[in-house]
């Protein structure tokens, strides 16, 4: 170790301390998941119950359905949320008029900053039986009313589509940045060889984007069990529990509404472990296929 670096290491300390205090110390609270925690007895007075809460999680008839729902919704969100911004970035990149390009870019990422509480209300008004879609748009095509929010399958569709609509503009920025970094010489060479725009996209643009796509995909894999509490909580109802109830809304109803802290911690730990495993796997894959490395 170079002596001259010691000052730099010293400057690292505040950051490390912060991470330790706020990210690592609270992990001690995970012991709640193995206890029958009662607030007035405290962590050290509550009974140990081992894996009981995990057993409860997997033995409840409805919780398996809830875990499956979470996988499906979050998985679809990740896939669609990756494909759409990539395509959009490529298309946007083809626009030659800078003003228009910037305007579109700004417009599509604005929804990212809106909260689901507001969007939930707007969607409710748009998609209800008397909403804009069922009352105005669909009749124009001769389509009867669609139970967007009261039928489980439609509900999933609405959740995934609205989430993509809200977030794709923001993800597009990352991909646009990577497009800007592609060496123009490659395109010039391709043009000389007689490649069309489509061929250029296929053989230059996409391959150059693969590393960043893999990175974004990898990072989002960690949230495979986060299907979006705010969104679903503001949109769901008892009719779509079978297809739309996710771990977080379930934990909210079970854990928070009826103060089952231990159960809620167990579910939280379960989610984190799955997320951790997936991140490790994805990191390996990213390393192998895209030569991406953090360490």
């Amino acid at each position: 170790m170079n002596k001259g670096h010691s000052v730099l290491y010293f400057m690292l300390i505040p950051g490390i301390v912060l991470v330790l205090i706020f990210n690592y110390l609270p992990m001690g609270g995970l012991v709640l998941a193995f206890q029958n925690y009662k607030p007035w007895l405290g962590i050290f007075g509550s009974d140990w119950v081992g894996m009981e809460h995990f057993r409860a999680l997997f033995s409840r008839e409805d919780s398996l359905q809830v875990i499956w729902n979470t996988f499906v919704i979050a998985g679809m969100k990740i896939i669609v949320g990756l494909v759409v911004p990539v395509l959009f970035a490529i298309l946007l990149n083809e626009i030659r008029q800078m003003g228009l390009k910037r305007a579109v870019q700004t417009l599509v990422y604005l929804p990212h900053f809106m909260s689901w509480v507001i969007l939930g209300g707007i969607l409710l008004d748009l998609l209800s039986s008397r909403g804009l879609f069922n009352d105005v748009i669909l009749p124009m095509f001769g389509i009867g009313p669609i139970p967007f929010l009261t039928d489980g399958d439609w509900f999933r569709f609405v959740v995934i589509a609205s989430d993509t609509w809200k977030e794709f503009g923001f993800s597009t920025i990352v991909f646009l940045a990577s497009l800007a970094g592609i060496n123009p010489a490659l395109y010039e060479a391709a043009e000389v060889d007689g490649a069309t725009r489509f061929k250029q996209t296929l053989h230059i643009t996409l391959p150059s984007m693969v590393p960043i796509i893999v990175v974004v995909g990898t990072l989002s894999l960690g949230s495979i069990l986060n299907a979006g509490f705010d969104q679903i909580f503001n949109l769901y109802n008892a009719l779509v529990y079978d297809k739309g109830d996710i771990i977080d809304t379930y934990v909210y109803r079970v854990g928070i509404l009826s103060s089952q802290f231990s159960f809620a911690s167990a579910v939280g730990l379960f989610k984190s472990v799955i997320g951790f495993i997936l991140i490790v796997i994805a990191y390996r894959l990213a390393y192998k296929f895209a030569n991406y490395r953090i360490f």
């Binding site: 409805d62 109802n237 008892a238 009719l239 529990y241 509404l257 009826s258 089952q260």
Partner: peptide, 24 residues
Amino acid sequence: TMVNKGEALRTLEHETFLSIIYNK
């Protein structure tokens, strides 16, 4: 038992009742 199973029962109840009202 309410704490442990109440929510599952409540979910079942609301799901069933609403499905019946909705003629599903």
